[in-house]
Design a protein around this nucleic acid. Structure first.
Length: 314
DNA sequence: CGTTTTTGACCGGCGC
DNA sequence: GCGCCGGTCAAAAACG
């Protein structure tokens, strides 16, 4: 899927409503000095406005580039996943039948590729090849995660248990076991597990009391710089945009978070005829993220007021 | 003072 | 039945 075809990311806000050449003001020779001073003041404020608009323009360009990059990364990831799906779906069906009754170990999630986290299989003979492939895909996943601002929920589109795993790079010195995904979580337990020296933290979604979603966070035993967050269940409320202030969107840089698991469905797993709806959802999410950026709203306001001024002049 | 985190106790599933 | 283990509960502490 092509990013430009999927989303029109051009943000032509028309933030330069003033033409390069402003119509020269013709001041009559007989005008009073008071009027002249007034004109000078207006010229001054006009140049200030022009500077402001230039700033806004460059901001607009930056935002456009940022969006383009996000879409590019998303498209690359999506293409990759589609390839994987077409290649692996029969295999997954087979392994699903072999899922053990025993609950999964956290490291099993680590081994499975994007969105394919599933139970442990008993077929140990094919495990080695499988594991090798998984490691490669995990690396690719990690790289793409970094492209998508290092955080992106992954949904199991094949397993109806709605379990997804997210890998978050963190400082090894950071022992907080927190993964900021926009939702509000309440920690209800912590446990040291057998096969991992670092403790596992258990979280419940605290946005809505009835929300059944749970999250487990544990540092990866293989790569301590990675946090492994395992999500179970589906949020029964609106997304994180309405709840928590994402620190990344408040500072100087703005981040567009693509929540691909909202509602428990992977966007990537949707049929093509459903994508138009998802386009709207994505656009809404982007718009929502952008409107949280005070700089963006200021730029938008400036653009609109500029356009209004232009229209009133003509 | 309400909310969140911490942490030891408890529970249930599983293997032996 | 017993022990192990992962998951959850709930009281106390910490925090804002």
């Amino acid at each position: 899927m092509d990013g430009s075809s999927f989303l029109d990311i051009s943000l032509d806000l028309n933030t330069n409503p003033f033409p390069a050449k402003l119509p020269k003001k013709e001041v009559s020779v007989s005008a009073s000095t008071h009027l002249k001073r007034k004109w000078l003041e207006q010229d001054e404020s006009a140049s200030e406005l022009r500077e402001e608009l230039n700033r806004v323009n460059s901001e607009n360009m930056k935002l456009s580039e940022m969006l383009a990059r996000v879409c590019e990364s998303y498209n690359a990831l999506h293409n990759h996943l589609e390839k994987l799906q077409s290649r692996q779906s029969p295999e997954i069906d087979q392994t699903d039948k072999l899922i053990k009754k025993r609950k999964q170990d956290p490291d099993d999630f680590l081994g499975f590729p994007i969105g394919l986290s599933s139970g442990k299989t008993e077929n140990s003979s094919s495990n080695e090849d499988h594991h090798h492939q998984q490691q490669q895909m995990e690396q690719q996943h990690e790289q793409k995660n970094q492209l998508l601002s290092c955080k992106r929920p992954v949904t199991d589109s094949f397993n109806k248990a709605k379990v997804s795993t997210v890998y978050v790079p963190t400082e090894t010195s950071d022992t907080s076991l927190t993964v900021k995904d926009g939702f509000q979580w309440r920690k209800y337990g912590q446990k040291v597990t057998r096969d991992n020296p670092s403790p596992r933290a258990y979280f419940r979604c605290s946005f809505a009391p009835s929300c059944p979603v749970k999250k487990k966070v544990q540092r990866s035993a293989e790569d301590p710089s990675l946090l492994v967050a395992t999500y179970e269940g589906t949020h029964n409320h609106l997304g994180p945009n309405a709840s928590e202030g994402d620190a990344t969107s408040q500072g100087g840089s703005s981040t567009v978070t693509l929540d691909l698991v909202h509602g428990g469905h992977s966007l990537l797993a949707l049929e093509k005829n459903e994508r138009n709806t998802m386009q709207e959802v994505l656009i809404q999410q982007m718009a929502s993220s952008l409107t949280k950026d005070s700089k963006f709203t200021a730029a938008l306001a400036a653009a609109i007021s500029g356009r209004l001024m232009e229209q009133s002049r003509t």
